[in-house]
Design a protein around this nucleic acid. Structure first.
Lengths: 212, 212
DNA sequence: TGGCTTCATTTTGTATACAAAATTGATGTT
DNA sequence: AACATCAATTTTGTATACAAAATGAAGCCA
């Protein structure tokens, strides 16, 4: 699928709408309807939907038709568990391999987070939050792990959860916990890093469930 | 994509050929060529390729065209790391949740493995090997983890590695290690289970690298 | 030779036509 | 009212046509 093609345009558009919850879970996506909406042929829409099927963002109904994959309360718990599994696994590799420059990189992200919170840029702070976790995955040096993490749509889910941080307290705690994780990495103390990450993610899950 | 459709037929066929290495890494897949080979229209092939693109089994060339994703030596290492991350994560959950019936299920798989090795059914033994690891993932109770594991094509990679077990010693060691992991689960001893799994996977990686 | 242009050929991108299947809704029956 | 039946309509599956783009080979010139 060429990035310049109409199929790709439709693919990006649908993907964005699904991940930002503009399309309700379980909703049916009719080929011709979207072809008309986006002024392309049904072929292009079909191709986009097929790719999204491969990415597991839409599913195919038993009697035909494409539907937005739905997200239940159970999913929230499962995603938290998977984040913990993947990020803990990454931490173990990171602690073995990380260089001083890379530690500085994580430190910069923590500082960015702090200053954005201070400046009241809460959206930006959420982005820095996502970036902190993505960077840990990245620093594992395992490309496939990175693929799995990104492909599992955890970052977007994460960003969405970010909307649930409404109190300044949440941001300050997040900041503090990130720095604790960073300190454990500096000390090459895997067990401490693991415990701190666990605490951090559990708190995130609870905050998210509070608002839903 | 309806399971009865031609697109689906092509999708399954190409998927099988890719995962069983009948199609060489990096090889280009021309739409019309496969349409003729499988006696369907180019549309069906295109749809199959697009889905495989979503599943990351093929990639799209910078100047167009679909290519089989390639698998390097580095990939072998990365997949071993990911298997360990996912299976260790699953073990932690399994140890918290597993019932006596489920322990018996794992025991049965171990026994199947033993008797197939004794009977000289080495292919069957490999299947039981894959099944042991898949069942641990399954027993975690996390559906998304299962999706990620299956979707990451680790089981097939695993099966392929199975072809590298040529000596009886390998099978006996595998059997013994599976039973050690099972014992740790019975004792609800996560740390022991983790260490045993690590040892098991490392040995598997070395055996695989030996033959390549 | 080595690099450039040009043009024929191959391959892909997109739309559309038509057949097959699913859905809807009206109708009649109990 | 509940249900089955069937025709009308919508929606999907598949093939094909044609335009656009990429590829590659032949020839040209320095």
């Amino acid at each position: 699928m060429k990035p310049s093609s109409l199929s790709h345009k439709v693919y990006l558009e649908l993907r964005k709408k699904i991940l930002s919850n503009q399309l309700v879970s379980g909703m049916r996506l009719k080929e011709d309807e979207w072809a008309q909406k986006m002024d392309v042929s049904r072929t292009a829409v079909r191709e986009a939907l097929t790719r999204l099927l491969g990415e597991d963002l839409v599913e195919f109904g038993k009697r035909g038709g494409y539907f937005i994959k739905s997200m239940t309360v159970e999913d929230v718990k499962e995603i938290r568990e998977i984040r913990e599994i993947l990020e803990t696994g990454a931490l173990r590799l990171v602690i073995e391999r990380i260089s001083d420059e890379e530690i500085a990189e994580l430190e910069t992200i923590c500082n960015d987070f702090t200053s954005m919170v201070e400046g009241g840029y809460l959206g930006g702070a959420c982005e820095a939050d996502v970036k902190f976790h993505e960077t840990i995955i990245e620093l594992s040096g395992n490309e496939k792990l990175k693929d799995i993490y990104l492909h599992s749509n955890i970052p977007l889910f994460h960003l969405k959860l970010g909307q649930s941080m409404t109190h300044m307290d949440d941001y300050e705690l997040t900041d503090k916990e990130h720095r604790e994780i960073l300190d454990s990495i500096k000390k090459r103390d895997f067990n401490l890093a693991e415990r701190t990450l666990h605490k951090h993610l559990i708190r995130g899950e609870l905050t998210a469930l509070d608002i839903s």
